[in-house]
């Protein structure tokens, strides 16, 4: 099971139908996935007679549909992603991005939707070239909603879209856009976890500098730490819920391992994620 397999299964599965009722299409693929009980309507040419003889019930071979996927990614490159506890959260985002494009097969198309452009097709087969364009000095300020609207206008229906951000600038008015994207594409959102999610490492009079502007000099005590702990959890939960409600696959981007964070969103164990 890989991220690509999960994406293909998502394509096979009609939307809003529960798990366990996949529809098997006749595809051009040859990669065997699994055996399962025959369901009326299955292509009879996919019935595995040997397995049927062994089990006594009709068994259908599920073959991986071998089609080209369009893998698109939006990665928040704003300064707020360049802070972290031990390293910038953006490093974890790059790892997740590597794993995302690493899941691409030879014929798949890879697109990076940046703050100001979509990566030209000439770079489709070279994810590293795509990554190199992210966060350059000339890049205009990242706007998540703008990037999502760009994706809506540019990607073909059925594409797989990954969006990684801390989602600070996502407003309530953007829920409609999220729902539209969720209905049109196989969307996955990774929410960058607050570096101080576990514990606010501040005590006494502290000075904070905002990555995107603003400074504060104030006293932080036990009361403040507790309030912050609650607020951070509430924010993460509510953000995840917004995406889940609009049919996005969701996950939390952890600072220590971006690739594993992406895999966890697909229900994969860390070793099952292949990065490029």
């Amino acid at each position: 099971m890989t991220i690509r397999d999960a994406l293909l299964r998502g394509r096979r599965r009609p939307r809003n139908v529960g798990a366990g009722s996949p529809t098997v299409y006749r595809g051009d693929g040859y990669e065997f996935v699994e055996l399962r009980a025959y369901v009326p309507g299955d292509d009879v040419r996919r019935i595995d007679w040997a397995a049927t003889a062994r089990s006594g019930d009709l068994q259908t071979r599920v073959i991986l549909e071998d089609v080209a996927l369009t893998l698109a990614a939006i990665v928040d490159s704003s300064p707020s992603m360049h802070v972290g506890k031990r390293r910038p959260m953006f490093c974890a985002a790059r790892e997740a991005l590597g794993a995302w494009f690493g899941a691409a097969a030879t014929d798949d198309r890879c697109l990076e939707i940046g703050a100001d452009r979509i990566t030209p097709p000439a770079l489709q087969r070279n994810p590293y070239a795509v990554l190199a364009s992210v966060g350059s000095a000339t890049t205009p300020p990242f706007d998540a909603a703008h990037a999502l609207r760009t994706a809506r206008g540019a990607l073909p229906r059925g594409s797989a879209l990954l969006a990684i951000s801390d989602w600070y600038d996502l407003s309530a008015e953007d829920d409609g856009l999220l729902a539209e994207l969720g209905a049109r594409y196989d969307c996955t959102a990774l929410i960058a976890r607050d570096p101080w999610y576990d514990e606010l490492p501040l005590d006494g009079i502290v000075r904070l500098r905002g990555a995107e502007g603003g400074r504060i000099r104030a006293y932080v005590g036990r009361r403040e730490r507790e309030a912050y702990r609650r607020a951070v959890r509430e924010r993460e939960t509510s953000t995840l819920l917004r995406f889940t409600n609009t049919h996005w696959r969701t996950g939390v981007l952890r600072e220590r391992d971006g690739a594993a964070s992406l895999g966890a969103a697909f229900g994969l164990r860390p070793g099952e994620v292949r990065a490029r």
Binding site: S80, M81, V83, M89, D166, Y168, D194, P195, L200, L202, V206, R207, L208, R209, G210, A211, E212, G213, G214, R215, I216, A218, Y219, V220, E224, R225, A227, Y228, A231, V232, R235
Partner: peptide, 15 residues
């Protein structure tokens, strides 16, 4: 100390 979003910090922790 650098933090991603000071506005959120102020609203959350009320320092």
């Amino acid at each position: 100390l650098a933090y991603s979003n000071v506005e959120f910090f102020v609203a959350a922790a009320k320092p």
